[in-house]
Measured scan of single mutants.
Amino acid sequence: MDEEYDVIVLGTGLTECILSGIMSVNGKKVLHMDRNPYYGGESSSITPLEELYKRFQLLEGPPESMGRGRDWNVDLIPKFLMANGQLVKMLLYTEVTRYLDFKVVEGSFVYKGGKIYKVPSTETEALASNLMGMFEKRRFRKFLVFVANFDENDPKTFEGVDPQTTSMRDVYRKFDLGQDVIDFTGHALALYRTDDYLDQPCLETVNRIKLYSESLARYGKSPYLYPLYGLGELPQGFARLSAIYGGTYMLNKPVDDIIMENGKVVGVKSEGEVARCKQLICDPSYIPDRVRKAGQVIRIICILSHPIKNTNDANSCQIIIPQNQVNRKSDIYVCMISYAHNVAAQGKYIAIASTTVETTDPEKEVEPALELLEPIDQKFVAISDLYEPIDDGCESQVFCSCSYDATTHFETTCNDIKDIYKRMAGTAFDFENMKRKQNDVFGEAEQ
């Protein structure tokens, strides 16, 4: 370990593993360490099931009705991949897709007046949907046509809207959309967690709705994908990429100290040895004095023996409960997957309800979601602090990732990755940087 590296990475969460992969592909010498004996950090999948019970201090362990412990891979952080989103792009560019198998999530649902409705995925579904009345549908269709044709580089498509100054509230007004449709559009399509976006320039919202539609167009059922064997497969896929390009991995490796000289990182000390480096990437748990708390998320993992009611017996789905429907500031989400994804025993389902904490009784906040899941065989409640770095790391060369937020997709995580890359490399992130180099010394032969 007593060696000189360009970059040392602490923690094998998804953000850290993707950055480690990119740095290795770009010719950097990388050492990647984790104090845990497993990959994934906060974003790991726990197996066998006995391990999950232990982690949540349920000492009696799983009953026999849960089947074989080894058949379970339970995500600690519930997220899906947008089919046309940035993480899929990263997987394709790096060819990490060859280590993973994905399934399309069967449906996306939205909560309205105590019931759940399928988010329409085709024009026919939209016309048949009970989510809105006849005239509302016509106006909504006009709005969707506007979004589909919108091109930020072609003012002819703006229809009198200025993407940089017109607020989204004004765009909704222009198409005369009612409150329910606005809730549905902002939260189930643009996937905002709160209503803060309404008074911001509309460009980002329009682009988010386009991303949803384009992702949906790829597979038809929903815009989301999920990897077989759980999300823990993602960091491992990128760790393989890093290793192929010469990255060194050490799990179960305690970090005793991060060594600084004149305010700059110069190395990491572990078990009496020092590895030197020019730059350091880590998750917040490794540098508690360089991060601040930015809120909390509650996630309740529920094991069920039945599909969720009114989802047409889907073996995977997402449910969004827009905040307006339950008098909150932030949406509540449910991600459900099952034995069909090799993450649970035969006939079992895993539904994870999550939201940003707003009160001193977080469990009560998630109740509307839990009511949709009854009866629940077993619950595991996790309340996590969200951390963000206190500075950009440019001076110390210590670059810290943000905690995983309450969103049900990876777009915010990818933004964090691109942002850290830019601060480390001094140049904007470009997907081309992730391409495997042809015929290089570490390149794998085609399968």
Rank of each mutant, 00 (worst) to 15 (best):
T15P: 00
C17V: 00
C17E: 01
G27R: 06
L31I: 03
H32I: 11
D34G: 04
P37Y: 11
E50M: 05
L52I: 04
L52T: 03
L58M: 00
L59Q: 08
E60G: 11
G61E: 11
M66I: 06
D71M: 13
N84Y: 03
G85S: 03
K89E: 07
M90L: 05
T97D: 09
T97S: 08
K103E: 10
K103G: 13
V104L: 06
G107F: 05
G107R: 12
F109G: 04
Y111D: 05
K115N: 07
Y117Q: 01
Y117N: 01
K118I: 12
T122M: 12
A126I: 05
L127F: 10
G133E: 13
M134F: 00
K137E: 02
K137L: 03
K137R: 02
R141G: 05
R141C: 06
K142H: 08
A148G: 08
F150V: 01
T165N: 00
S167T: 05
M168R: 02
D170S: 08
R173W: 07
F175V: 03
Q179K: 00
H187D: 07
R193G: 12
Y197Q: 15
L198Q: 09
P201A: 11
R208F: 15
K210L: 11
L211C: 14
E214W: 02
A217P: 04
G220R: 03
G220A: 06
Y226S: 07
Y229D: 02
G230S: 01
A239P: 03
R240K: 01
S242N: 02
N252Q: 13
K253Y: 15
D256V: 13
D257E: 00
D257W: 08
I259A: 06
G263C: 07
G263Y: 06
V265S: 15
K269G: 15
Q279K: 06
P284T: 00
P284S: 08
Y286V: 04
I287S: 11
D289I: 11
Q296C: 02
Q296H: 07
I298D: 13
L304D: 02
S305R: 01
N310I: 00
N310V: 01
T311M: 02
N312E: 13
N312L: 14
Q318E: 10
I319K: 02
P322H: 00
N324D: 10
V326C: 08
V326Q: 03
R328T: 00
K329V: 10
D331C: 13
M336T: 10
Y339D: 14
A345S: 07
G347S: 05
A353C: 01
S354G: 08
T355I: 04
T356N: 01
V357R: 12
V357E: 03
D361K: 14
E363D: 12
K364N: 06
E365L: 03
E365K: 02
L373R: 02
E374W: 14
I376M: 12
I376L: 05
K379G: 07
I383V: 12
L386Q: 15
E388R: 14
I390F: 13
I390S: 02
C394K: 13
C394R: 12
S396I: 03
C400H: 15
S403L: 07
Y404F: 11
D405F: 00
A406D: 03
T407H: 15
K418L: 02
D419C: 05
I420K: 15
A425P: 05
G426C: 07
T427H: 09
R436L: 08
N439F: 14
A445G: 12
E446K: 09
